Simulated scan of single mutants.
Amino acid sequence: MIARAFLFIFGALLVLCTLCIFLLILLPLASASLSSVYALFPNKPSPQYTAFLTATGTIVAAISVVAAILTFWFSTRAARHAQRKQHTITVLLETRLSSEFQGTIEKRRAYFPEYTDVAFDDWNAARNTMTPPGASMDVIAEHKVRRDSALALTTLLNYYEFLAVGITEGDLDEEMLKKTLRSIMCNLVDDSRHLIAGMQKINPNTYEHLTALYGQWRKQNARDINGSPNERPIPRLR
């Protein structure tokens, strides 16, 4: 909106300046006699007259070039903004309507439910659970749930890391994502903050974009639906 208003005002000023210049030239021609018209265009114009015409032409040309550049820049920016919003809407719709994504959420809840802190050691043990030979079907099923839940948790973290990268690169609209996913993403990172800290102790670049975005989006002194502290900072382990 601001860009369009600025472009409109600049265009109006350009038209006004151009009209004023032409009026300054044409009004004497309209009111003067034929002889005075010839006098305006002598065979050998004075240096001042020549300089005036040259300066006037240069100013008009410069203003026209600047207006063309600004028009192209604002048009390109508006098209880029519209494309980014459309891409963001597509990503959100595909996620919400994806049965696979919803299944990933359910698998995560099976062993690592929301509003429960996930320790790195617990997650690591769950994903590396080995089923002993000759185990019963119940034990096999239980171990599978633990492994799937650990994998699902990191799948969700990877998804939000992907969104954070998209925002950083300018491919996704941050304002739209913040309005729709802020609380969901912050809840997930709050639950996983010890897990992320453990991963970053091994590799500092793990979820670096998600960590930065969480730092920008999280609210101070936030509370979850149970009244417990929420959106806490990710600890730094040494």
Rank of each mutant, 00 (worst) to 15 (best):
S75P: 00
D117L: 09
D191T: 02
L213K: 00
L163T: 12
A78L: 10
A135T: 10
E100N: 06
N230R: 14
K219V: 04
C17R: 14
M176E: 14
F52M: 08
T168A: 15
F41T: 07
T154Q: 10
Y214D: 02
Y207C: 03
D191G: 03
R218D: 01
T58P: 04
L172S: 05
W217D: 00
R232I: 08
E114D: 07
A3G: 07
T76K: 15
F112S: 03
M176A: 11
T131S: 07
T18P: 01
T154D: 05
F41K: 05
S136Q: 01
S136K: 01
G134N: 04
M199D: 02
R80G: 07
T56K: 08
T206A: 14
D121C: 03
T88N: 03
Y214E: 00
L14Y: 13
I167S: 01
L181V: 08
L157I: 06
E208W: 05
T116Y: 02
Y38V: 07
L34A: 14
R223K: 15
L29D: 01
L93G: 03
K179S: 13
M1G: 15
L210R: 06
I25C: 07
S228V: 09
F6M: 12
L210V: 08
L153I: 06
I140N: 05
S183G: 06
L210K: 04
L157M: 04
S192Q: 01
R182K: 14
P42L: 08
M137R: 09
N43T: 10
A5K: 14
T180A: 12
P42K: 08
E208H: 10
H209M: 08
I234M: 02
W217I: 06
T168R: 15
F120Q: 02
N203S: 10
